[in-house]
Design a protein around this nucleic acid. Sequence first.
RNA 1: GGAGAGUUGGCAGAGUGGUCGAUUGCGGCGGUCUUGAAAACCGUUGUACCGAGAGGUACCGGGGGUUCGAAUCCCUCACUCUCCGCCA
Length: 423
Amino acid sequence: MLEMTRIRTERDELIQALKKRNIDVTETIDALIEKDQQWRNAKTQMESITADLNKIAKEIGAFFQAGKTAEAEAAKAKTAELKADETTLKASVDSLDAEITQLLYQIPNVPNELVVAGKNEEDNETILVVGEPAQLHSEAVPHWELTKKYNLIDFELGVKITGAGFPVYRGKGAKLQRALIQFFLDEAEKAGYEEFIAPHVVNEASGYGTGQLPDKEGQMYYCAEDDLYLIPTAEVPLTNIYRDVILPDENFSIKMTGYTPCFRREAGSYGAHVRGLNRLHQFDKVEIVRIEHPSNAAKALEEMIDHVKGLLEKLGLHYRILRLCGGDTGFASAMTYDFEVYSAAQEKWLEVSSCSRFDTFQANRLKLRFKNADKKNQLAHTLNGSALALPRIMAAIMENYQTPTGIEIPEVLHKYLNFKTID
RNA sequence: GGAGAGUUGGCAGAGUGGUCGAUUGCGGCGGUCUUGAAAACCGUUGUACCGAGAGGUACCGGGGGUUCGAAUCCCUCACUCUCCGCCA
């Protein structure tokens, strides 16, 4: 969430910048500024009364120790009225505080200056297109037919065991999936990311830390019995490693990676675009996460983009990069680049990665700070990206590398597999 | 699942109603001494908020209560550890 001091000092700039998201936060911001003013007034008053009470309490202690019981009792009598005032003020400080927090939760992150105004995906900017659509043979089919033909993924079996959106990978399908995970992790390690195996289930505090709560409560699977959430992405456990952390100085650049399954309820999704691997409740993903000094965040995002480009090029996939417009940029993100690979068989672009910088938006909730040159605590910047999400990469590889006699596996994966063709 | 013990500052560990934001040790930082270092000695060392400032407030796992006053007493929740049981 945004910092209150920033809202106080940059009201007009924030309202203007947030218009790029196609929203007008003037009302919320002004309500915040007003509540904040009231809160500070009430707090100052309350604290001055508390200070008086503390002073009297000390005097009473001294009276008792000196044996001056009468004086002590007289002093006690004075406190009643002050306490009543303190209680009233405390109630209003507390309720204002809660109102302010609620309002702050409603304001999304401020878009970066590079982000264009826009309503939805139609306004996204295409930054780069690499490669050409795969030339398919005349009998080419979409992946949900290939997975059946070669017995790679069984969607119906998943329905039986769990429900729709929980596919069962088998045989060469399972091996290809595992090879891709290994490939992505190896590439991340080469790029300097430390690998983690983190919990796939997190507590409420972690959900708040990265911003899934309270905004996207309904998107996560929830274990009521233990008050825990299934992770929607490795971003949550990885970034929360640094919750409530103060880094000792400003010389840091933290690069983490991790493979996890991701669980998403996808409430409200339906229709043809969810067919096959296109949208699942459980899928695998290798995530990269960075904690950076504010001055290095822009460079870090560029490096992440280069990393993902490298992965797609090594896999020989035709892809494009979009810079999301304000309206399509996620709530917590300041700027997001989406990577889409082209599926020649489906004749559509499939999103396979999303790289974002969050500036201090997550760090503020996480209380992730560092000691700056002046020895002051300052919020760090967080970034993350998929490198990569598996299902649509699987889909694109199967579809784009299909031949009349089988599916040819991209060369970079050969060393992870004991076959080069699926037939 | 059963029984018990805990949760205090970066760490260890005192403190059972009042000069306790908290003894002490370690660690960190600064200094003295030294050619330099070590040792020794001295000093210093949390976070957040309010306030123009002086200064004030809060925090001893979270929340609530008792009291003029709570790290200390009461309630409640969470977590950790030990033993037993179960188990990959």
